[in-house]
Design a binder for these strands. Structure first.
Lengths: 146, 146
DNA sequence: TTCATGTTTGTAATCATTACAGATTTAATA
DNA sequence: TATTAAATCTGTAATGATTACAAACATGAA
């Protein structure tokens, strides 16, 4: 993934979003960190370099990106929203041991865009995720967790 | 669905949960109200009849039920948890107009229990939901929302 | 009855997110 | 270039959901 500033600036302008310095920083962070970070994680990291960065700006920016389809929201835990630069429909896996959320490729007729409505209801967003124990954590526990 | 107290008491005891009056009330409410209520909604309703009911008890009870597999948590909005008495794997639809969450029946290989792991990760929970505009809201808007 | 244990309750604390208003920046225009 | 309106950013306070905690209460066994 190319993460230079020019590319990021273009991405914002293509969606009609004015490319301010703060917005460039947030989008750049999301492109570099595809581990579905929280607003807090994004803020903590950017605030290191830009001490004047406000957390409100982080939220404003993320909500702006959401409205313009630049990012997607991942709501798995129920207590916090995680943000995803990957706007193609895909599934997620949340490990209850390490807490990591990883992308998952599964065959899904909805993600393929073949189905646009169900029982007369119009589908605009598709969300699918699994909870369990990831491969690494299973191996770490010497196959105890099965 | 039978929602008499004897049936509810049996359900709790079958899971090894002591059937206290508060727990019976919460489970009874969930059996009667299958519209994926929030903790707040459950509290508001029960508090009408039992003024001494504490919101902490609602949360304690719901978490206890979750641990014992009596109910499932539905996390769609990202800001609040909704609770579901239907513990069979199924999908949900959230309407962005009326805010209602309804059950959805879709063909899904994961819900059938055919697939128990993905890339070496063990699947324990399957969650699938859609966001969009429900049939009723589309009709209400005279087919404007397509 | 006594005692230990489990349950409930009310209040305070926590955490994520939003509201709001003032300060700052930007962009257009004279 | 100076002016000015609009957009953006910032910090603080407020909100709303959830949890922590400790005291009060209920239960069941000895």
């Amino acid at each position: 993934m190319i993460t230079n500033m020019k590319h990021i600036k273009n991405k914002l302008e293509a969606k009609g979003v004015k490319p301010t310095y703060q917005r460039l920083c947030v989008l750049k962070y999301l492109e570099k960190n595809m581990n579905h970070p929280t607003a807090e994680m994004i803020y903590e990291n950017i605030a290191k370099k830009i001490p004047t960065m406000s957390k409100t700006t982080i939220y404003n920016t993320l909500n702006l990106f959401l409205e313009n389809g630049l990012i997607h929201a991942v709501t798995i835990t129920g207590t916090e929203v995680r943000y995803d630069i990957n706007t193609f429909s895909h599934h997620h896996f949340l490990c209850r041991k390490c807490g990591k959320i990883v992308d998952i490729e599964v065959k899904c007729p909805f993600c393929d865009g073949e189905i646009t409505q169900i029982n007369g209801s119009k589908i605009e967003e598709i969300h699918g995720y699994f909870k369990g124990i990831c491969k690494k954590c299973r191996e770490k526990n010497n196959k105890v967790e099965r």
